[in-house]
């Protein structure tokens, strides 16, 4: 309302905390996503090749993740998790630990992403033509070699779309940390907007940064997909 010059000044003035928040969001998303991929691989292998008990436990995990809101999981991990761990630690005579907002964020995003990526990876592995495994066994590859040379590269063409979608969700889920008071991009924006009363200016700026992350991810994903699809059969 006070004109463009004023808005630009405000943006410049508040850009350091906003950009710091943006960086924190990206870091948490990247670490949480990586953790989620590891959990997802473990979960997918448990569901596909585990014994009945492991398979059931993996099923319970993915079902719970799909039913409990991320925000509630975040509270559980942020408040109840450390309390439980510290109770156990003091019980065994150890020093209680303190879980940071950053660590809780990475853990929650990792655990949530793990639930969804379990399903994506499982589906992708099942989509690999079984002849490839038979061929690998026929030429005498060991289990580890099959995993490294057939399963992991083979699932990528089928799993990339789902896994990239999960990455986009991870970047947006970091905003939930604002609710428990961790200053990532959304909370930094709220603080800037509250202090200056320029709500639309700062929320639009933050929206622009999130969209920037999304578009940059799209470009990377497109190149990855093109690379991975080399040598794949084209479906007419």
């Amino acid at each position: 309302m006070e004109g463009f010059g004023h808005s630009w000044l405000l943006l410049v003035e508040w850009s350091p905390p906003l950009l710091r928040g943006f960086l924190a969001s990206l870091q948490i998303a990247a670490l949480g996503y990586s953790l989620g991929l590891m959990i997802g691989l473990t979960g997918a292998f448990s569901k596909l090749y585990g014994n009945p008990v492991v398979r059931d436990l993996a099923e319970v995990y993915t079902t719970l993740i799909r039913a409990i809101p991320e925000l509630v999981l975040l509270l559980l991990l942020y408040f109840a998790g450390p309390a439980l761990i510290n109770q156990l630690l003091t019980h065994f005579g150890r020093v209680p630990i303190d879980i940071s907002g950053f660590a809780a964020g990475v853990l929650v995003i990792g655990i949530v992403q793990g639930g969804y990526s379990t399903e994506v990876i499982r589906g992708a592995i099942q989509a690999i033509p079984s002849g490839q495994f038979e061929a690998a066994r026929a030429i005498g590859l060991s289990r580890g070699q099959i995993l490294r040379r057939v399963t992991l590269p083979g699932m990528l063409p089928y799993g990339l779309a789902g896994l990239s979608n999960l990455w986009l969700i991870a970047t947006k889920d970091t905003a939930l940390l604002a609710v428990v008071g961790y200053t990532e991009l959304t909370l930094a924006t709220r603080q800037a907007a509250g202090a200056t009363r320029s709500f639309f200016l700062f929320y639009s700026a933050a929206g622009f940064l999130y969209l920037l992350a999304t578009f940059a991810s799209w470009m990377v994903i497109r190149r990855l997909q093109a690379r991975i699809d080399r040598g794949q059969e084209r479906s007419a």
Binding site: K172, A175, L176, A178, T186, A206, G207, Y210
Partner: peptide, 10 residues
């Protein structure tokens, strides 16, 4: 492309 929480607060 943007978080729901950001939209809600906006």
């Amino acid at each position: 492309g943007t978080p729901l929480l950001l939209q809600l607060w906006l």
